Every structure is written in structure tokens, then in C-alpha cells.
Simulated scan of single mutants.
Amino acid sequence: MEQEIYLERQGPIARIVLNRPAKRNAMTAAMWRAIPALCAEIAEDPEALVVVLTGAGGKAFSAGADIAEFPEVYETPESTRAYNEAVEAAQEAIVALDRPTIAAISGACVGGGCGLALASDFRFATEDARFAIPPATLGLAYSFNATRRLVGKVGPSRAKDMLFSGRLIAADEALRIGLVDRVVPAGALDQTVAAYAERLASVSQYTIRTMMRMVDAITLGADEPTPELAEAWAASFTGTDFAEGYRAFMEKRAPVFRWR
């Protein structure tokens, strides 16, 4: 039996693959619970510099939580709490990764699948991708953290539209409202994502990880840097990456950064 979710490496790029194409990569409870461990494995690998989250089969990123499991996972208050905590932990594990994450989206990106995409730093989608957050059609509520990320991407009015109506949003509208960062032809998604991931892997990882922390702090409402962020900013000017970067510029060559 094939794994429903797995991790693979392609050079400096780690790929988390949702692998239930016959079910449009709908997320089982076991898949939600597997994601934190996969993220921990990535976090412990110094050679994995960029993370791509994708759905197998090319027809769907993820149709969301597997509703066939709902009678079981929502059977009791205890099972409900455990399942919701597993979903939240999976999304927060993606957010907590200290390296860039790219959701490569084709086809359906719905409900909890959209939550996984929102947890990523970037969302690249195909022209045939479709997005929806349909809890209102089921009598449910979206989680606070996923809702906060949605509002941060599309603004409060558009977030309310998506959450209240549960309507499908086409890729061109998703791009226009800021839900996704780039839309490409279906056959170009893998190449586009790989090229961008390789570019991110080639630049200073010190810069990326410091700026990731800084942007996240600003997004969460910080008005000034923490002492740790201030120290990281100051340390960049005495670091080996900066020395290599400006020497490479002066020597008219590509810099070779050595993250460890």
C-alpha cells in the first residue's frame, strides 16, 4: 500500500507529497498527524533549504479533510478535540519551518487543503486551480489561525465572502485578490516551482531565515524588533555571507554561500 503522505528530497529541495490522488488528496487523520514529524525531519536536515508542498496526480492539491472520516473523528468531544488539534498542529508545523515553503497547487484546493496552502510562505497555482473554504455549507467554523492567515492574504471583506459563501474561486480571481502569488499554465507548474525553489536555495540562507523571522514578527503586530531580531540584523554585517556577497559583486561572479 502506497504511503498517503511522504517526504522526498531533490537536492536542496524537500517535497511533502499528499498522495491520495484517487480521493483528490483529501486529508485523512493519519495524514494530518504525519505532517509535524515530516516537518521535524526537514528541520533537522541542514541540506534541505526549501520546502515544496504538493498533491500527487496533478489533478488536485487537496480537496480538504476526508469527510468520510467525520462520523469517527467527530464521534465524541474527546475525538473531536484530538482531531482538531491534529489539523491545527499540522498547519502550524508548516508555519514554524525556518525555511521557505511553497505550495504547488493544481486543481482543487479546498477547506483544510486551503489551510495548508495558507500556512505556506508562497502559493503557486495552475490556471485550472480552484479554491474554496466551505465550512458554512457544513455548519462548521474555520480555525482562528487559518482565518487570521486568510484575512492577512485577502483582507477582511474577501475573507468573509469566502467563508460565508463557500463559493469556488478561479485561479485568476485568487491571484487578483492575493490568495495566490503566481498563476502558470498547468504544464509549467513543476518547472516554475523548481526554478524558484532553486533560486531561493542559491541565495544567503542567513538572510532568508532572519528576514522570515522579521516579516513574521511584523505580520503578528510587532512595532519594533525583539533583542534577538536586532542582534540578528546587526550580526549580518559581520557574517561570512555578507563578506562573500559583496566580494562576489566586486569580482563580478555569482556568490557561493555556505549555510551550515
Rank of each mutant, 00 (worst) to 15 (best):
E2I: 01
Q3F: 03
Y6A: 00
P12S: 13
A14P: 06
P21H: 11
P21M: 02
A22Y: 06
N25G: 03
T28P: 01
A30Y: 02
M31E: 10
P36S: 12
D45M: 00
A48E: 04
K59S: 11
D66H: 11
F70T: 08
T76L: 01
A82G: 08
E85S: 10
A93I: 07
A93Y: 10
V95Y: 11
S106W: 02
S106A: 15
V110I: 15
V110N: 05
G113E: 08
A117Q: 04
D121Y: 07
T126I: 02
A136I: 10
T137D: 03
L138P: 00
G152I: 09
G155Q: 07
P156T: 14
D161W: 14
M162F: 14
L163N: 05
S165V: 05
L179S: 04
V180P: 03
V184G: 07
Q191F: 12
T192F: 03
A194S: 15
A194N: 13
A195M: 03
Q205D: 04
M211E: 14
V215Q: 12
G221E: 06
T226Q: 07
P227I: 08
A230Y: 07
A230C: 03
A232W: 03
A234Y: 03
F237P: 00
T238W: 06
G239I: 01
R258A: 15
